[in-house]
């Protein structure tokens, strides 16, 4: 999926302006990292791309469509092709880890055959092989973030939006997660992730180099192009 945003402005109900006439472009199959200090509007930007925060003004096109212009059923269909890793989009508390991921496969309309095996395989690949029957409350914060990421990726979305996915993860966990993200991107998905200065370390940049990531920096409501981004 391709994302294009022109003159994007977002003013929260509190009056705070988090985006001010910003431009953004992510070609199909690209890997984009939005860097920025905390509270600069990275989450808002990603939610905007995910159809959750309507821009106050400006033009946004995701795959040539304005997600805010779709009828409810069309928007649901559109959302089902987007994977999101948002910290506030929690797991179902009363379902096990395995059920949480299976639920998404049901919802996204994946064929029922072989779903459980795929989930088991993915969990063990992520180092969570023994966590399938566990409840989200039994997981550490890092494990929970990993499950959130797996849930967003297992159905191979065409667009993956990840809001600070490496925040608070140890090196082993984030490197596994980054590997998944890069694999997904290699498969043709457009990946846009946000990160704070400390949550996207040099090692991550190196590991992502193969995919020629594009870096942009969000500062003062403006998105600075890659060449201006302070890396």
């Amino acid at each position: 999926m391709m994302i294009q945003g022109f003159h994007l402005t977002k003013v929260h109900s509190s009056g705070a302006k988090v985006l001010d006439d910003a431009y953004f472009s992510a070609p199909e199959g690209s890997f984009t990292v939005v860097l920025g200090e905390s509270r600069t509007g990275k989450s808002t930007l990603l939610k905007m791309f995910g159809g959750e925060e309507k821009p106050t003004s400006g033009t946004l096109r995701v795959d040539h469509l304005d997600p805010y212009d779709l009828a409810p059923s069309e928007k649901d269909r559109w959302l089902r092709s987007v994977g999101v890793i948002f910290p506030d989009l929690e797991l179902f508390p009363d379902k096990s880890v395995e059920e949480n991921i299976l639920f998404i496969l049901h919802m996204k309309g994946a064929p029922p055959e072989g779903q459980r095996e795929a989930v088991t395989k993915l969990l063990s690949k992520a180092g969570l092989g023994d966590k399938g029957p566990a409840r989200p409350s039994d997981l550490s914060s890092g494990e929970r973030r990993m499950v959130l990421a797996l849930r967003a990726m297992i159905f191979r979305p065409r667009l993956l939006l990840a809001d600070d996915p490496f925040q608070g993860l140890d090196e082993r966990t984030w490197s596994v997660l980054l590997k998944f993200l890069l694999e997904l991107n290699k498969g043709g998905a457009t990946v846009v992730l946000s990160a704070g200065p400390a949550s996207f370390p040099e090692a991550a940049k190196k590991a992502a180099q193969d995919r020629s990531p594009r870096y942009v920096k969000l500062e003062g409501g403006k998105l600075l192009p890659a060449e201006e981004a302070v890396l």
């Binding site: 059923s73 269909r77 959302l79 929690e90």
Partner: peptide, 16 residues
Amino acid sequence: REDYLILARMGAPLWM
């Protein structure tokens, strides 16, 4: 409502 909101945010169809 949290469960319902998760469903809605992920684009669950109406029947679901």
